[in-house]
Design a binder for these strands. Structure first.
Length: 365
DNA sequence: AAGACGGGGGG
DNA sequence: CCCCCAGTCTT
């Protein structure tokens, strides 16, 4: 209760600061519920700068809930290609279909109903409700947790769900009913541009300078507290560029798990030598003509990292069905979503056979 | 409560 | 190399 009284005093300075300093962002142009929704899903665990071009492209291709609900999966993933966390867009489509069926194509102006939609958790429900509908509910994300921890000099671990809930309760009590959306955005904006996560906080430019306990005590840089993350596990993989003249092999990943439903270059566990690769391909009934080793590459996900090596293998045109899809390199770029994890190797889809540098190191079979 | 789930930018 | 981001879902 004490804290709330203190916190109450941040409302007016924060709103005044936001009114004068709000960034111009594409989704702030005409903040319809749909556009707010799309932006909030894209912004989950993703920086504003990264989202901008995706938001533009996505909302032009799919301008409303009906278009999103009806979009073909491949096209949907292609629009999301490079943004990561691909379940976000699949869940958003499921939610769009629910909105079509249950709410006549209009997002409900109701926090609890929003919360029930696939892919909308407490943060996103609060963001849509407050920004699109002016409903006075909290929208607590990483920015808000950081700002509030510092203002209150809280040493609590912000990764704990209980702490997030406490902060939501605190915000709920001070949120100005007439400016709910502006207040939530102001809190996040402050976290994004002043009370920053990386590097020194810009306290000299902060509208809450005089009310920040962490600043007063000189402990800004040590907050917020977060429990240590687990180390990533390392996985070795061998990536295969399998080509038969013009076409190249790609493979659709399973519908669940890492990079679900996206297309990949064929790849196998372990770092294989040339002979092992050839043996493997023959077992899969390919007839290799030549093989060329490629450089090593690394791709880091949040919880795992791939240490990859690769080969370009030219094979004779397969006579029977394979587990792979053979497509024109150009078509891959245009129609098949391939995650960034393979970007070190996708350039080899295009190299013309017989080019000098490529030929020199070729091993003819 | 813990783990899975991408990718990129900044120090 | 590390951190962390306008988080959510599943187990």
């Amino acid at each position: 209760m004490e804290t709330n009284k203190e916190l109450e005093s941040i409302v007016q300075p924060l709103l005044a600061w936001f009114d004068a300093n709000a960034r111009v962002l594409p989704w702030r142009d005409s903040p319809t519920p749909y556009r707010v929704w799309v932006s909030e899903i894209m912004l989950q665990q993703t920086r504003v700068e990264a989202v901008k071009p995706f938001f533009q492209r996505f909302t032009e291709a799919l301008p409303d809930v009906a278009a999103l609900a009806a979009c073909e999966e491949e096209k949907l993933l292609k629009l999301w290609e490079g943004l990561g966390y691909y379940n976000r867009v699949r869940n958003m489509q499921k939610a769009a279909q629910t909105v079509m069926e249950e709410y006549g194509g209009e997002l409900p102006a109701d926090y609890e109903k929003l919360l029930k939609l696939k892919g909308i958790g407490s943060y996103t429900a609060g963001a849509i409700a407050s920004i699109a509908f002016q409903i006075p509910v909290p929208a607590v994300d990483g920015n808000v947790l950081r700002v509030i921890s510092r203002i209150t000099a809280s040493e609590k671990d912000i990764l704990k769900a209980s702490v997030k809930k406490e902060v939501e309760d605190e915000i709920r009590e001070i949120i100005p009913p007439e400016r709910a959306g502006a207040f939530n955005q102001a809190l996040m904006e402050l976290g994004a541009v002043v009370c920053v996560p990386n590097g020194p906080a810009k306290c000299d430019a902060c509208p809450l300078y005089g009310q920040c306990l962490a600043r007063e005590r000189g402990i800004v840089s040590s907050l917020p507290k977060k429990s240590a993350a687990k180390p990533r596990r390392v996985q070795e993989r061998t990536v295969l560029i399998i080509r038969d003249g013009e076409r190249v092999a790609i493979h659709k990943r399973p519908p669940k798990g890492l990079l679900a439903g996206l297309y990949e270059l064929p790849n196998v566990e372990g770092h294989l030598g040339q002979e092992e690769v050839l043996k493997l391909l023959k077992k899969k009934h390919f007839s290799p003509i030549r093989i060329q080793p490629l450089e090593e590459a690394k791709h880091i996900f949040s919880h795992v990292e791939w240490h990859m090596t690769g080969y370009v293998i030219t094979v004779e045109e397969p006579e029977r069905e394979t587990e792979y899809l053979f497509v024109e390199p150009r078509e891959t770029e245009e129609n098949y979503p391939v995650p960034a994890a393979f970007s070190a190797y996708t350039k080899y889809l295009q190299i013309k056979l017989g080019q000098e540098k490529y030929k020199e190191e070729n091993k003819e079979l």
